[in-house]
Design a protein around this nucleic acid. Structure first.
Lengths: 226, 226
DNA sequence: TTAAAACCGGGTACTTATACCTGGTTTTTT
DNA sequence: AAAAAACCAGGTATAAGTACCCGGTTTTAA
């Protein structure tokens, strides 16, 4: 049994990417992939069913389907840290949006990497989270700092709540589907005034100037699938 | 030399995905990866420099950086088919948007697959384009049909030109950056009336109802990076 | 169970976007 | 050299979005 070294788990819905990551890791010394999952739903369950759990969990998520509320990458982070606080979490994403990265960390991840990263960075990051408990690169640090700053400095009247409510998410989706305020109101059986209010709140929360910014935010934060 | 079978080339900017694909392919009988490129710029040049060219080229592209006009996946397809008509092209993308798929085929690809596809589908697709010259799955077929239909049936007054002009692409980008018509006009030293005209044309060409649709289109068609 | 947050909806005002008309110049293609 | 496409810009009009005001009910959390 060469089961020494760092035990790694992969949560990744793209099969090929997962295979690539696995073959990479297997070639690195003192590392082995002992856990895999193709979706977020089953991760907790699978982890519970085994006593041989990974030291480091690499989580990556593509876009969740539009329309349905899903267990997304952030939820997985939260669930894992709640149930298995010893497991270190390294989040992989295709986004380098600061808001997103900051949220990843806020939800409990021990590090973040963009998917395009050099394999050696991945290796370093795995070592870092395992041995030092965290891997915060420059970009991640900046993201954290900027997002902490937002909550501290008082010259921004409304601190960003960052997290959108269920209703707000619904409305963002409909906006992305090119529905007008009036259509959204009809669809949700509420007044256009209410929808209007939600839109204003959304613009504030997402720090957007207009609909275009809102849509970009939605895509970046995987509120809608492209 | 086990250089028999199908010779495959990979054009893929995500290193890890490329590795995954490579290791998958190497495990399949009668296939081998003999060519790789991490970006679109160098593909043609690299192909010219060798006489041992791939039979099948798998092309996948993430988003090109915003702001600069780049050689994107479609350009690569066109360039390859022009220079090396014998090479079969299989396009991989994260999008299943019909417009996009149709465009891929229109530009000369011999098949299309979404990146989330089952590895076995990839294998089948490679065989198909190599032996039958094409791999058109159900989704691709639908995309083609719908897009051909658009140009045939006369109840749609303006056929979609599909391809955006340089100026239009510029304006789309600025819209995605949350600029208003007035700001865009200032930035480009043109009248707001002109920008307005471009916007209208863009909505028509992209088949969008409003700015939200335009932004989604831009993201889908990789006109902007998210 | 009390407070906070979310949700709802009325009002008003202003800004921006959408849509079409016209015709002109410049650039690209054939 | 001619045709086509792109680009430019004026006019006019309506539709939609942005941004506040107010106070109410319902849901969630401390």
């Amino acid at each position: 049994m060469a089961q020494n070294g760092i035990h790694i788990g992969l949560v990744e819905d793209q099969f090929i990417f997962r295979e690539g990551m696995k073959s990479l890791i297997q070639n690195w010394p003192n590392m082995s992939v002992i856990f895999e999952s193709g979706d977020g739903h089953s991760v907790i369950e699978k982890l519970k069913q085994t006593s041989f759990r990974p030291d480091v969990l690499l989580i990556d998520f593509s876009l969740p389907p539009l329309g349905e509320q899903e267990f997304n990458g952030l939820d997985v982070i939260q669930a894992v840290t709640n149930h298995f606080p010893d497991i270190k979490i390294l989040m992989l994403s295709i986004h380098d949006d600061e808001n997103f990265i900051a949220k990843v960390i806020e939800y409990g991840a021990h590090g973040h990497l963009v998917k395009e990263s050099d394999p050696d960075d991945v290796r370093k990051a795995i070592h870092a989270v395992h041995e030092k408990g965290s891997y915060i690169n420059e970009k991640t640090l900046r993201a954290i700092q900027h997002n902490m700053g937002k909550k501290i400095k008082p010259n921004q009247p409304y601190a960003q709540h960052t997290k959108l409510t269920k209703r707000e998410q619904q409305i963002v989706e409909l906006i992305c589907l090119q529905h007008t305020t009036e259509e959204i109101a009809e669809k949700l059986f509420i007044s256009t005034k209410t929808v209007n209010g939600h839109r204003i709140n959304l613009l504030q929360k997402t720090n957007s100037r207009n609909t275009a910014g809102l849509v970009i935010y939605a895509v970046k934060n995987q509120l809608v699938s492209v």
